[in-house]
Design a protein around this nucleic acid. Sequence first.
DNA 1: CGATTATTTCGTCAATTCGCGAAATACAAA
DNA 2: TTTGTATTTCGCGAATTGACGAAATAATCG
Lengths: 111, 111
Amino acid sequence: MTKEQLTTAFKALGDPTRLAIFQCLRDCCPTAAFEDDGRIRPADGPTVGEVCCQITGAEKITSTVSAHLKELRLAGLITMEKRGKFVVCALNPTTVAELAAFLGEKTNACC
Amino acid sequence: MTKEQLTTAFKALGDPTRLAIFQCLRDCCPTAAFEDDGRIRPADGPTVGEVCCQITGAEKITSTVSAHLKELRLAGLITMEKRGKFVVCALNPTTVAELAAFLGEKTNACC
DNA sequence: CGATTATTTCGTCAATTCGCGAAATACAAA
DNA sequence: TTTGTATTTCGCGAATTGACGAAATAATCG
């Protein structure tokens, strides 16, 4: 991970709305595996609309949350995939693990 | 750690200069344990001036780096202590570990 | 096809941030 | 006390950010 990728990722997490999204995706399961019409939705995460509802209480996704999701995606922290009319998202565990590893790297032994 | 503390800490790391300072403090030892006059300097970290030199190449600490150090301190990521004419600093391993732990928390089992 | 639903992009505005230099503060040495 | 050194605070301007609503895009439904 380059220094620039690290700063981008940390900056993405350094906003209350985006951190809430991050926690939502980390802690929450997709709220349903089936649509109203019975079709199954790939269970890799909630739709962006569902995430927005959890975060802001809004019924539909807002442009603000959409922008935050985009930033998290560009930072490599989440994945987003189109599923018909919906966009589902999920954490990118690889990047998260790399951030944790960066923080966990040992301090130089002589200190 | 509250949500606000988490965002503050991540935001503090989300700037290239501050991340460089963080890496410097994590990876570097104090460059010397003795002053010119022979007095020992507490070996808990380099002076802020030494950190600034490593980061920017400047001979004396700049107001920019001073402000970044303050933000890292307010975020709980580093400690700063006055030692006579100097201010020495060091990582706060507790906060760093808490951030790493937050990122490392397991995804909900059902996902 | 048109209508509806889910989402993103765009434009704007207020607020924040970053870097800089000058001035202020703190401490030590002479 | 005066001088010098290390550092912080202040004030400013340029650039970025976050929130919001309106418009655009994309896919499904009828």
